[in-house]
Design a protein around this nucleic acid. Structure first.
Lengths: 254, 254
DNA sequence: GCAAAAGTGTTAAGGCTACACCCATGT
DNA sequence: ACATGGGTGTAGCCTTAACACTTTTGC
């Protein structure tokens, strides 16, 4: 049998699942939707859906992201988007039996977004919410917003979420990706709080400031200032053109 | 329409494609197979094949790797394997139209192997060979071993190969992955030549020696020595347990 | 002896950590 | 005045780059 013989064709369903991360308050949060139908009815899951016949994997992920959150992907040319997010492919999960109904291969994507007012429940999801990743990944799983007992995420979504969080944690070390968690204009302190939330550590504000402002291409000053965090007015910056940080941000050991 | 409604099922074919890299002579080489049937008949391509109904994506990739090269994956418990390779998922490619016959989603995997005697043509491939990656990625494509004019790789395999090479180049910076290109026992000089071949740079042998022997868990001495590279006898090492290198190997700028 | 590859020593340059210290605002 | 967060200076530590030098083999 040839590896490309069409007669060897075996039918799979292909979906995209989304790990959408944002920083809210002190911690890292992910978007979860409540399943409205079996299997895992009533359980929380990652947003996602089938890939359509005429679209690329990245297009399918961007479409699902827009349906669930209203976010547009950064490289979309249109300037009318209220909010933009970073989107990249994460990994593909294809265990037989990961979906009890049929053979489903899911191409997971990772999206990073600034803090949004509130998730809008897309099309078919009964509800959607931002939940701290520790809750979603904890042994007990996530509790409902109304105090329902905690249950783990549906399917293998806890594994997918863990992989996405790990990708984000390591990638902000050597890339400018942390700016994707910030609004278009932000201060050095706001960027530092992103690192602290994603890594779960405290960083020295003085050394952090020197480091990020000294890395060429990371931040460009807009000229404006803000006092929205209190204290002395802070300079506002936009993300610079650099995508890779040299030298990288150093993540404290423990 | 629910994103998980089975009636929304759309038939895809799912394949695994393999980027198998090794270091031969002075450079980085990849395994290429010649296609025996349309489309792209006679052109060089990456090895790969359909995922079977009962196997995981990683199992499918390991099976294809064994069929094409006889290599076993490292974490296979059996000690009888003559050669072992590192295998990891790379990325998934699902453009509509990437295969002219049908909608094919390919989950590409990256395999790193020590230098092997010669590729064995698996099952259906007319022939298989190791080719320098610059040749496979060059604008003109790869020439046949008998002097046929060069043609580009089939499908989107040049893109997949480029992504795999980039993954290998960056991952040997911060992980012990470079040892996957070496035989079970190797010298510091042999490991250095791996870095030089993958990065295409020259490294200072003295500083390299200090760095790798000083990184805890990277290399463990076996006690033996060899003179197979000429000169003064060199200590033999095995890969240590460490998978992540701290501090990382520094890749020269240019 | 000579070439070749393996190792060790040393020094200067630059990045990081830690912390002292000053600046500009709101209350 | 004081609290709060923003920003700069500096000393010590550590890593790296560059290169001089010694060691051990094959021919």
């Amino acid at each position: 049998m040839s590896p490309y013989d069409p007669s060897a064709f075996l039918p799979f369903a292909v979906t995209v699942d989304l790990v959408v991360l944002t920083v809210r308050g002190q911690g890292l949060c992910a978007l979860a939707v409540r399943r409205g139908e079996p299997p895992f009815q009533g359980r929380w899951a990652l947003p996602g859906g089938f890939v359509r016949g005429d679209e690329d994997l990245a297009q399918a992920a961007a479409r699902e992201l827009a349906e669930e959150t209203g976010l547009c992907v950064q490289d979309t040319g249109g300037a009318e988007a209220a909010h933009t997010a970073h989107l990249e492919q994460l990994a593909t999960y294809g265990d037989p039996g990961r979906d009890p109904r049929m053979r489903v291969v899911s191409v997971a994507h990772l999206a990073l977004a600034p803090d949004l007012p509130a998730p809008r429940a897309g099309g078919d999801a009964h509800s959607a919410r931002w939940a701290p990743v520790e809750d979603l990944l904890g042994r007990d799983g996530v509790a409902g917003p109304g105090g329902e007992p905690p249950v783990p995420l549906a399917f293998d979504h806890a594994r997918i979420l863990a992989d996405g969080v790990e990708r984000a944690r390591s990638k902000i070390e050597y890339s400018s990706l942390a700016t994707a968690f910030c609004p278009p204009e932000f201060t050095v302190g706001e960027l530092r709080r992103v690192y602290e939330a994603v890594w779960g550590v405290a960083l020295d504000p003085r050394n952090f400031h020197r480091k990020v402002t000294g890395t060429p291409g990371f931040l460009v000053p807009t000229g404006g200032t803000t006092t929205r965090q209190g204290g002395r007015p802070a300079q506002l910056f936009r993300a610079g053109g650099a995508t890779v940080l040299n030298p990288p941000m150093l993540r404290p050991e423990i």
